[in-house]
Amino acid sequence: MIDLLGHTFMQRALIAAFVTGLAAPVIGTYLVQRRLSLLGDGLGHVAVTGVAIGLLTGLAPTWTAVAVAILGAIAIEVIRERGNTSGDLALALLFYGGLAGGVMITGLAGQSAATLNRFLFGSITSISLDDIWFTLGLAVLILVVGLGLLPQLFTVAQDQDFARVAGLNVRAYNLLVAVLAAVTVTIAMRTVGLLLVSALMIVPVATSQQLARSFRRTVVGAVLVGAGSAVGGLLVSAYASVRHDVSLAPGSTIVLLALACFVGTWPVGAWQRRRDRLHAPFPAEPVEGHETTDHPHDHGPACGHPAVPHDDHVDYVHDGHRHAPHGEHYDEH
């Protein structure tokens, strides 16, 4: 294993996986907040055409993919802003057009399907030094813009009308998020591949929001899960190939590891949400008569009945109603 880490290609792969895992969930959080979780997926499809154009023209596929994905992101944002009822359909047409166009242009370029597969499913271990600098530069850009403008981007995604009255240029910020998502898609292309790009943006956020109660903590948690599963997934697949001679594709291992994190945190989140509901206030209702009940035991922190703060005292939920200690007996509240 240590030998493996000594190889240049493995060091490069680790750097690429780490920065991609850091950057992708930051943009993913804004997409989830705006309920656009599948946007990254769509941009991934559009980027396939960009890669194919690179293969056809002999330009670097990474750059052509960035260019085409950004154009696609702008087109999607314009369609969304028009607010057409068929906007959803228009997006689907764009996505399928992107994928089909990419496959066709790759064929025209005389390249085999295997070449395209490198981009569809990632080829992190064949990253060149130029690609590392490219990935690092764009990841830094995403982190600086995505975290630096967090208050503005949060407000725009939370409530567009309010943001507009607060004097924010909502259209510019929406375009910025779409363009950053396109950039993220292309840097994650080498790590997990275009078809799994969205997973690295969205799954860490889904994991993190199981436990977080604030937006900032969701972002921090998502970045930890993203970077952790990117590096962890790469190491697992490398270990499996060296020790057990099993070939695990790094991209799918990374995504499945992130999904495993989600599966692990979901029960905790579900339990926490259930507990929060017990703390939720009862709807205000008129106070009914002064009923009293005798009760076989003293309610207290250890009695096992859920405790509900009620004005100046604590009620205990008991068989669907609330008991409030009052001298020797309990009042029904």
Partner: peptide
């Protein structure tokens, strides 16, 4: 200007704390 839009919920797709939502009013 202060604006309270017509909507039923202050929640969105990602958890946000009360202080964060109120804090976005300071952006101006």
């Amino acid at each position: 200007l202060g604006f309270v839009p017509q909507r039923s919920s202050a929640a969105s797709g990602v958890p946000a704390s009360v202080a964060e939502v109120v804090g976005s009013g300071r952006l101006t």
